[in-house]
Computed example of a mutant assay.
Amino acid sequence: MLYPTLAIITGLVLLVWSADRFVIGAAATARNFGMSPMLIGLTIVSFGTSAPEILVSYMASINDAGELAVGNALGSNIANIALVLGITAIIAPLPVKSGVLRKELPLLLAVTVFAGMLLLDLQLTLVDSVVLLSMLALSLYLFQRFQRNASPEENASEEEELPELKTGNAVFWLILGLVILAGSSRLLVWGATEVALALGVSELIIGLTIVAIGTSLPELAASVASALKGHHDLAIGNVVGSNIFNLVAVMAVPGLIAPLSIDSIVLLRDYSVMLGLTVALIAFGLIQKPPKINRYEGVLLTALYAGYLVLLYNMTV
């Protein structure tokens, strides 16, 4: 297990370093191009950190494992809310701006519900995938419109804390950080998978846990790094944007390649958990005055994710 262990250590080190570079590049690019941190978190950061999910979805689909691609999208969304935001909130409580509660989070809920409606017939067809991609275009338009029409209070951010980099340097660190972020997450997943197999853990459990968590590692690394630097908009926007991308882009991939039949348990268990967590996320923002996700709620989200993993294990042994 020497090489897998080295892969885990190397992947973790590169993940932490690249996340720091990526956040610095993203924040500086946002300021240089006049974009709000929330908008760049919803678009560039979230799309970039969804790259592992897109890669897994494509590879699974061309290898006749489209259901794995759907499960990866749903499982990653569960991990993004319960694990990524949970751990991030424990490390640094996240204030939630009123505009996010009124616009971006309701959009995430609407996309989640609509995606569930498409899956009710337990089929993912070419038409379904085209509809999902159309929702991606609509979501990108709405992101831009939300931020353009935002009030000064909604667009207020930790402007003085944003790094000062020339545009060329900012874009360089943004791209380099993204590439290493995606590569290091894959290296870490490979190492963890090999170690788990050597210890006798079943491939099914690995797929339901390590792969789902592994493809969410870029979101976790980017969100924690953003929160520690005080860029809370980047952290929250990253998760909201990534979850929307996962549903309308990642989940659309298998249907574009071949029609797919989905097991009913995916809808009853995984989709229901994802929908419940999305509703809970909005509720957490509404409970606190001013709106925020505090450490207590972060612990609760993390505990819910642990409970979900236990549920998966009990249903597969």
Rank of each mutant, 00 (worst) to 15 (best):
M1V: 05
L2Q: 08
L2V: 10
L2K: 08
L6W: 05
A7P: 03
L12K: 07
V13G: 14
V13S: 14
L15I: 15
W17R: 08
S18H: 12
D20C: 09
D20E: 14
I24P: 04
G25F: 12
G25P: 11
A26P: 11
A27K: 03
A27F: 06
A30Y: 07
R31D: 12
I40V: 11
G41Q: 00
L42N: 06
I44E: 02
S46L: 09
F47C: 04
T49H: 06
A51I: 08
P52S: 05
E53N: 13
I54D: 09
L55M: 13
A60M: 04
N63L: 00
G66D: 05
G66S: 03
A69N: 00
V70G: 00
N72R: 05
N72K: 05
A73H: 07
A73D: 03
A73K: 05
I78K: 14
A82I: 09
L85H: 01
G86E: 00
A89C: 12
I90K: 10
I91F: 04
A92F: 04
P93A: 02
P95W: 09
V96S: 07
R102T: 13
R102I: 10
E104M: 06
L108A: 15
A110Y: 06
V111E: 01
L119A: 04
L119W: 00
D121Q: 01
Q123G: 02
L124H: 01
L124T: 06
S134G: 15
M135R: 03
L142E: 10
F143S: 02
Q144W: 02
R145H: 14
N149S: 15
P152R: 03
N155V: 07
E159R: 11
E160W: 09
E161M: 11
E161G: 07
L162T: 15
P163T: 00
V171C: 07
W173A: 10
W173Y: 15
G177C: 10
G183Q: 12
G183W: 13
S184M: 09
L187K: 09
A192D: 01
V195M: 02
V195Y: 04
V201I: 15
I206G: 11
I206P: 12
G207Q: 01
G207L: 00
G214Q: 10
T215S: 13
T215H: 11
P218T: 08
S223C: 05
V224C: 01
V224I: 10
V224L: 08
A225K: 06
S226N: 01
S226T: 11
A227L: 04
H232Q: 15
H232V: 11
H232N: 15
D233S: 15
L234R: 10
V240M: 06
G241N: 07
G241L: 07
I244E: 02
V248P: 02
A249N: 04
V250W: 09
V250R: 15
V253E: 14
G255R: 15
L256Q: 02
I257S: 01
A258F: 04
L260S: 03
I262F: 05
D263I: 05
I265M: 11
I265R: 15
R269H: 11
Y271S: 10
V273A: 03
G276F: 08
V279T: 05
A280I: 12
A280R: 11
I282H: 13
I282N: 12
Q288R: 10
K289M: 01
P290M: 04
P290N: 07
L300R: 08
L301E: 12
L301A: 08
T302Q: 12
A303D: 08
Y305C: 00
A306Y: 01
A306M: 13
A306L: 14
Y308C: 09
L311E: 06
